[in-house]
Computed example of a mutant assay.
Amino acid sequence: MLFPIGILSAFVTLVFCAYAEGAPLNEILSDALNATYGKRILGGSDARQGAFPWMASIHINSPYITSVCGGSIVNKQWIITAAHCFGENFQDCEVKAYIGKLIFPETPVGRKCELPIIHPQYNGTHTLNNDVALLKLKKPLKFTERVSSIELVPSWFNTDKPGEPTFADKTCSVLGWGSTGGDTKLSRKLQVLNVQIQPREKCISVTRNSWYPVKRGESKFCAQGVENGDTCKGDSGGPLFCRHNDGIFYLHGIISYGKIICGTKGKPGVYAKIKDLEEWAQNVMASC
């Protein structure tokens, strides 16, 4: 059974509630963040400092929802994340982004963002299709070795469909600050996990009987962690990225939802497909 974040947020009061389970994530965390909450990336390993300089942690506070999601820096003023992180009443929310952090949170200082720009065809928790949002930072970033951007995969690339160039049946990676095992404590260090992108028809088949099946024509794809590693609640909005033949990492997916029991064999996570959403994102960033 699959659940979007809008359902979970009514019951979870701690700040890490962004990845809808099944679902619709320097050294010290606060007592509240150390409290048990829920698992995020399972079976991952510690990320190296500076290896993934585009990773951001998005903190959302409003009268309706308090949550943390992942995000990816696209350029000096824009971050891309999941639309469902903001719930239904995002006009009243305050959003901050924590940038360049390996151990979370390294400092309590975030960068303020403007209100999210949600994809116009995102339909909330009805299907979770087009689950993408853009955040504009109020002040541009200064890029360093630890803070930089990731390229959006272009629309002509076949992320999960047959026909070269494609990453179907190939290995890519995901990032998040989640549990590293079966307990419910958050990981203090950013985790990285290898996942295999499933061919389109297999993704459609294995999600057919779920609450949110992947259908033909939708901007989604599936990826399964190696040895049942998986993303989980709290990882929403984070990146699925792949290294291309030119040696550059490209953002292919945004963590959206998955099985309620994270890491279930044969039940992949589902991701918003950047290749279908790249043109919209580029147009928004150019015009706002």
Results as ranks from 00 to 15, higher is better:
260 I>P: 07
46 D>E: 07
144 T>R: 11
156 W>I: 12
223 A>R: 09
18 A>C: 02
195 V>T: 02
232 C>Q: 03
55 M>S: 07
195 V>W: 01
112 K>S: 13
146 R>C: 03
150 I>C: 02
73 I>W: 08
254 I>M: 02
98 Y>A: 08
5 I>C: 11
229 G>V: 02
136 K>D: 03
73 I>Y: 09
282 Q>H: 05
251 L>F: 10
98 Y>H: 13
157 F>E: 12
153 V>C: 05
275 K>M: 13
127 T>S: 15
33 L>R: 15
246 D>M: 05
252 H>M: 08
66 T>V: 10
48 R>P: 03
50 G>E: 00
31 D>M: 11
276 D>T: 10
118 I>A: 12
9 S>V: 11
34 N>G: 08
39 K>N: 10
67 S>K: 07
170 K>S: 09
184 T>H: 13
241 F>D: 04
58 I>K: 07
256 S>A: 12
112 K>F: 12
37 Y>L: 09
60 I>K: 00
285 M>P: 10
196 Q>I: 09
208 R>P: 01
95 V>I: 15
17 C>D: 12
11 F>A: 03
281 A>F: 06
187 S>T: 06
129 N>P: 09
67 S>M: 05
230 D>Y: 02
212 Y>C: 02
169 D>K: 15
205 S>D: 07
8 L>I: 04
22 G>M: 10
105 P>Q: 11
285 M>W: 13
170 K>H: 11
141 L>S: 13
75 N>C: 10
175 L>I: 07
248 I>K: 14
29 L>W: 06
111 R>A: 09
186 L>Y: 03
64 Y>V: 03
240 L>M: 15
238 G>N: 02
268 P>Q: 05
244 H>G: 11
100 G>V: 02
248 I>H: 05
248 I>N: 07
159 T>Y: 12
60 I>E: 01
12 V>T: 11
